[in-house]
Simulated scan of single mutants.
Amino acid sequence: MNPSQVPLIEGILARRTTNGPFLPDPVRREHQHLLMRVAQAAPSHFNSQPWRFVLVEQPQTIAQVADISGASMTELIEAGVFFERYRRYFRFSAAEMDARRDGIHIDHLPGPLRPFTRQVFSDAGLKLMRQLGVPKKLGEDNRRLVAGSPLLLAALLDRTEYRPGELSGFYSVFGLGAAIENIWNTVGALGMGIQFISTPMELPHRWQAIRDLLRVPDDLELMAVYRLGYLPEGEKRPTIDWSSRHRKRLGQFVSRETCDVPEVEG
């Protein structure tokens, strides 16, 4: 049996993050509930099911989250915080990507920045980006992507289970991660895509604004927000985009018997 021909395994191996726009069509209610059921099927410590979800369809709420997300992106890029924080994950050539097999390949930049690919995230490159208005452009691109999403999904944890610094904190995060992965592996079968709305999390005041917008009570912790929708034919890449389809070779992340014996392929 070829594992890649088993639909479930094939879907897992084909899993992707959607960086482009969605169709404007509302996500069917039965599809929303199916995603909640596959999340519910995830394992959790003592069947505690610590996850909670909020499904957001109201255009006004989505537009407000989009404004927060776009402003967050502009603020992060303008201050250089984003690139400084994540510089170690950037790869600037196919050869470097093939050797490391992790991180992201920066292979899609605005025309004026392409000659400066390797320097684009330096202080000089950041100055050039400011001069070219790139932070505002990226913020607007981000805002539009979120605003054009027919469905947002907020993922939360019950604070009676989620206690950072205790084992229950780990168990809760592990369970939520499994629930989200079930959702991520299901959207493809429904002709949908999903993307993490991460930029507001980088800035505490922006994240609090989303907490307030969603009326998150004190007994719940807002962990993440995602955008979802049906995929159009032929996605257009965003202004700054990257490829991250490489995965480490087996011997780079798997050991046999002890940590000092890398696994052999085949």
Score class of each variant (00 low, 15 high):
residue 265 E to P: 11
residue 67 D to C: 11
residue 67 D to H: 12
residue 158 D to V: 02
residue 83 F to T: 11
residue 254 V to Y: 12
residue 128 L to H: 03
residue 124 A to P: 00
residue 150 P to G: 05
residue 195 Q to G: 01
residue 194 I to Y: 00
residue 241 D to M: 03
residue 192 M to T: 07
residue 35 L to I: 09
residue 135 P to F: 13
residue 130 R to D: 12
residue 77 I to L: 11
residue 126 L to E: 12
residue 38 V to L: 07
residue 61 T to K: 11
residue 132 L to D: 05
residue 90 F to K: 04
residue 129 M to H: 08
residue 81 V to L: 12
residue 68 I to S: 09
residue 234 G to K: 12
residue 182 N to L: 05
residue 143 R to F: 06
residue 162 Y to P: 02
residue 77 I to G: 04
residue 72 S to C: 08
residue 238 P to D: 08
residue 4 S to G: 03
residue 30 E to W: 10
residue 228 L to T: 05
residue 161 E to C: 13
residue 157 L to F: 01
residue 127 K to Q: 13
residue 108 H to M: 00
residue 207 W to S: 12
residue 14 A to S: 14
residue 109 L to Q: 08
residue 23 L to V: 02
residue 141 D to F: 02
residue 242 W to G: 00
residue 15 R to C: 02
residue 58 Q to Y: 00
residue 193 G to T: 06
residue 12 I to C: 08
residue 148 G to Y: 03
residue 183 I to L: 01
residue 53 F to H: 08
residue 226 Y to P: 00
residue 259 C to I: 15
residue 198 S to P: 00
residue 210 I to T: 08
residue 54 V to E: 02
residue 265 E to I: 08
residue 161 E to M: 11
residue 34 L to E: 15
residue 204 P to M: 06
residue 144 R to A: 14
residue 18 T to S: 11
residue 58 Q to L: 05
residue 242 W to Q: 01
residue 216 V to Q: 05
residue 27 V to F: 05
residue 165 G to T: 03
residue 15 R to W: 02
residue 182 N to K: 08
residue 239 T to P: 00
residue 243 S to C: 10
residue 22 F to M: 08
residue 19 N to V: 07
residue 182 N to F: 04
residue 113 L to H: 06
residue 69 S to Y: 09
residue 32 Q to N: 02
residue 63 A to V: 01
residue 246 H to P: 01
residue 44 S to Y: 04
residue 194 I to Q: 09
residue 92 F to Y: 15
residue 128 L to V: 04
residue 174 F to I: 05
residue 176 L to F: 02
residue 158 D to I: 03
residue 207 W to Q: 10
residue 238 P to Q: 09
residue 155 A to C: 15
residue 109 L to T: 09
residue 136 K to N: 14
residue 43 P to I: 07
residue 198 S to D: 10
residue 190 L to V: 04
